[in-house]
Design a binder for these strands. Sequence first.
DNA 1: GCAAAGCTGTAACATTTGTTACAGAGTTTT
DNA 2: AAAACTCTGTAACAAATGTTACAGCTTTGC
Lengths: 210, 210
Amino acid sequence: MIQELKDNYGHFFEEELLKEINQVGTFKEVTEGFHLIKPGSYIKSMPLIISGAIKILREDNDGDELLLYFLEKGDTCAMTLSCCLGHHKSEIKAIAETDAKLVMIPVEKMEEWTVKYKSWRNFVFDSYHKRLIEAIETIDSIAFLKMDNRLLKYLKDKTKVKSDSIINNTHQEIAYDLHTSRVVISRLLKKLENDGKVKLNRNNIEVIHI
Amino acid sequence: MIQELKDNYGHFFEEELLKEINQVGTFKEVTEGFHLIKPGSYIKSMPLIISGAIKILREDNDGDELLLYFLEKGDTCAMTLSCCLGHHKSEIKAIAETDAKLVMIPVEKMEEWTVKYKSWRNFVFDSYHKRLIEAIETIDSIAFLKMDNRLLKYLKDKTKVKSDSIINNTHQEIAYDLHTSRVVISRLLKKLENDGKVKLNRNNIEVIHI
DNA sequence: GCAAAGCTGTAACATTTGTTACAGAGTTTT
DNA sequence: AAAACTCTGTAACAAATGTTACAGCTTTGC
């Protein structure tokens, strides 16, 4: 395990800390679609992502949802961070976007390492910063972009985290992520296809060039 | 000065830290409308808010803007935090919503205190958590609410931070904060007035009961 | 192989939001 | 006090998004 840890976190953390992580962390593999966090649940350990991608969603009281952002290797979930440290409930939902490997860190260690390791402090601060920026970029998209451009951005982000120009999703699934209706997505995708930007198949969208 | 510091931050920080803050911090008073942070600028000190309210806005490339949230006494600006620590550029704009008193903390101290004081660490983590939550609530509003309810929420938030049921703003100013057009705001405000929820005057909206 | 279920495309229409234009009332400047 | 400016109200229209309905195709389960 230490090798994958080193590859992904070696340039953040000093040797000493890597060893500790390796000792106290639990290695975890999840398959695509696995629900890592449900809203309202309490969280007792924090994930460091080794490989794959996790999607973070916001869900409102009516069960409507909206994609916030993706986490990738080297990332951690800032909401989990703050939930752990502040003992708040989860405000979000996390689902494995691809098969993924994680190292779970028990909460107790986090405080300890914050005092002990400068690199850990920086990592935590940096994670918060990145997530805040991501959240604000999500706000940008919703507030300043129209649905056609939001969809384009979504497709682009998705191909990036999947490292694959083919997206295996139904229009309905995309509509859930963007919090709109299936018909709207079908309509806009068709337009993108006519513009030569994507190729549509059943359960499958090929992103040609965006 | 120590009195106001103590009143607002006494239950967060230990005596020792309060003294340090008092020593190295610069007391600052700003009047309503003062621009504290402009997007793209670098920030070399971090504000602790003693009294008053600061509004934090996001601005896109075309100069369109959107209210993110308000900061009040006991709060600090998480974006500033992460800009200081990570030496990033500001991604936001901060304007005094009311006359306000602040204590400015030089960046260098922040790292130092993070190691030295548990209460400071907690404060910083807690601030990040709160801002992330606020950002996500902003996302909720934009994504899940229609403009009429966003306007209601805006009026409610505004009366809260001003501690005053009368809001001295033009419709145009509100439209900027919510990133819509003046006509839309006038239309919806009129509807709220007909429903008996507000009373409209020139430059002035009285919030009756929401 | 057949029925049921799921996915996509399309049309027709409703609602929400954005835009332009203009009138009238209040405020400030000269 | 007249002119210039600002703010609000309203109408008419445009554009974007949401909703309902249905047809045709593919896949799944039996």
